[in-house]
Each structure stands twice: as C-alpha cells, then as structure tokens.
C-alpha cells in the first residue's frame, strides 16, 4: 500500500508542476490610452512591466498638465495669457521650453515653438479650417519668432500676442522620459508609441532588432517600408496626418514660418531615427520644411539619420540607415 500511496502522491505533485509551467513566455503588458491629443500605447516586457507602464502613464498625464495649451492650470496657459509679463514655470516646463528654443535656434527657426498663432489661424484639424487671407497671415507672421522668447532659469516671458505651443516636441520629450522610467523599473524591452513618436527599447530578441514600419503616405493605415532598429526613437512627420483640402490642393499641418503657408516642398514625409526623441521630433518638422535637398545636406552636416519620402514616390535614406531600411511596397522606388 505504501508504494501505491507514494506513486499516487508523486503523480499528483507532477500534475501540479505541469499546470505551473505552461505559459511562461515573455510577460508583456500593454496599455492603450489617450493623452496629448493622440492615441498612445506602451508595451513593456518583464516582471515589473505592469508597474512600470502605469508609472509612465502617470508621468505623461502629469507632463500634459504642465504644458497643455488648453488647460487653465498649466504653465503654458499662464505664459500664453500673461500679456507680456513674466511667468514662473515649473522646472520641467522650463526644461522643455529651453530644449524647444535650442532646437529652434539649431534649425534656424524652421522648427519654432511660437508657431501657434499661425497654426491657429489656419485651424487645420478643426471645423473652421480654411485658407486665410494674405492680410491675416501678414498680421500673424511677426508673432512667430522664437528669438522673442525670454527664458531665465524658470522665469519666462513672451510678447503679449505671441503664443507658445510645445506640441511639436512634447511627445518626443515624453518618450525620452518614459524610456528612463522603464529602465529605472528594470524593463529591458519595450515599445513606446506616442502618436507619431515611437521609441523602441532594447531588442526584440537576442540579436534581433525591432521592426518598425513607416507609414505609407498614400495609405495612412499601412506601412510601406520597415526599419530594423533597437534602442532608438523613430519619429515621422507627414502631409497625411492633418490637412485641409481645397480645390484639389492639400494644405498640411506643418507650416513654413517664413511664408506663413503650409510647407510646400517635394516631400511627403520625413522619418528621423535617433536615441534622442525630443530633438528627433523637432527635426522631422524642420527637415520637412527644408525640402529634400537642403534636408539631406542638413542631415549630413549634423549627423542626423533620416528617411525621406518624396512626392515622386522615391525614397531617400541617409547612409547610417541604409542597412536597416527595407522597402516593401512596389509603389515606391529606392533612390541610391
């Protein structure tokens, strides 16, 4: 009898073990949420994934509270309504504003955080979107000038009628900090997608990079090419995101601060790859405004890696990305 008992008990124990070790694959935790006027998704792998992601979402909500243009309690709202007077900003807001100004200087104003009055005038993305009259543009254009923003420590001031919009680098900034939070929580693999701002942490598998798809400007739901990358941000700006179509002409939401009109170049989208998501965010805007030739030169001078999709359906890739880039769609041609 004893032998029988022992064998039965062993069988029972084994059964328990069986049930225990079945689904132990990578514990992935994903959260979809809405913030900063866009749909966001963070996927993290590892034991601490859930806690880490929750912390990230809290951070983003907190950041938005600081820099939102529309929330009355935000620093930026205060700054925009200060009528030329000095405003005290939180350290975080001051930090991001400083980065925005630095990047504006670096891109010679093609990325400009003071572009709000102009984009508001066009209203692209709202029901009031319309092509403004030249006089209206002329009136608003002088307000678009990042040099008139004064920032000393945490005290800032802008001209009375000017407005700051940090939406251009807000998501990039958020992504950089979210990655830090994930790392602090011991997460080694993650995919952070904040609207058009993607940051991939770690690798997909040992020696296997992540596959990031680039949106097809003709088919915004689909991707037409991929970049095999790890530990980097991938940011895109394109003319298909928000636009106004009048008489067959498309006016996109990226403006040329010099003309006051939507940037009209040979480009349809620009994708920047860099471990610094904040600057990548600003660069995509600036490069789009520059047009292909100037943009490629700028990239070479500043060692920026990017992918350019042109109106003639050609794709140009900077040297550093050539080996990671793969074209999938036959509708586009790769330009050597």
């Amino acid at each position: 009898m004893k032998k029988q008992q022992i064998s039965i008990l062993t069988a029972v124990a084994l059964c328990f073990l069986l049930t225990g070790c079945s689904t132990q694959e990578e514990q992935a935790y994903t959260q979809d949420f809405y913030a900063m006027d866009t749909a966001m998704r963070i996927t993290a792998y590892g034991d601490n994934a859930a806690d880490a992601v929750t912390e990230c979402v809290s951070y983003i909500n907190m950041l938005e509270a600081d820099i939102s243009r529309t929330r009355e309690s935000s620093d930026i709202f205060a700054l925009n309504h200060a009528e030329g007077n000095q405003t005290e900003l939180s350290e975080q807001t001051a930090d991001i504003l400083q980065e925005a100004l630095d990047l504006a200087a670096k891109t010679e104003g093609r990325f400009d955080p003071t572009i709000a009055p102009l984009s508001d005038l066009w209203g692209i993305g709202t029901e009031q979107a319309a092509v403004p009259a030249q006089e209206q543009i002329d009136k608003v254009l002088p307000l678009v000038d990042y040099t008139k923003v004064s920032l000393e420590g945490t005290t800032a001031s802008i001209p009375a009628e000017a407005e700051i919009d940090l939406g251009g680098i807000g998501k990039g900034y958020a992504a950089d900090h979210v990655i830090e939070i994930l790392k602090e929580n011991g997460v080694e693999q993650a995919i952070v997608a904040l609207g058009g701002n993607v940051y991939v942490l770690g690798e997909k598998d040992r020696d296997t990079p992540w596959k990031v798809g680039i949106t097809d400007p003709d088919n915004p739901g689909d991707s037409f090419a991929t970049l095999s990358v790890s530990d980097t941000a991938v940011v895109t700006s394109g003319d298909y995101e928000r636009y106004l179509e009048v008489d067959g002409k498309r006016y996109c939401h990226i403006f040329d601060p010099e003309t006051g009109y939507s940037a009209e170049t040979d480009l349809r989208s620009v994708t920047v790859v860099s471990p610094d998501s904040t600057s990548a965010d600003a660069y995509t805007t600036a490069l789009f405004v520059m047009g292909l030739e100037d943009a490629m030169e700028y990239c070479e001078q500043n060692r920026i890696e990017a992918v350019f999709v042109c109106k003639d359906h050609t794709v140009h890739v900077t040297d550093g990305l050539k080996s990671s880039f793969e074209l999938q769609s036959t509708e586009y041609t790769y330009a050597e």
Binding site: I191, G195, K204, W210, V212, G213, I214, P220, T226
Partner: peptide
Amino acid sequence: VCLPNRVMLKITGSTTDADAVDVIVQ
C-alpha cells in the same frame, strides 16, 4: 483612431507573416 470620439480599430491575432512589423510609426 478617431481621436475626438476615443474610438480605436485594432487588428490583433497570431500571424506567421514574416513581414509583420512590431509597430508602425504614424
């Protein structure tokens, strides 16, 4: 995504498609 309405369409499932991307940057 329809942002103002907070409605999102997602395609999920298992796929053996070797071309499948991990994320699309929009």
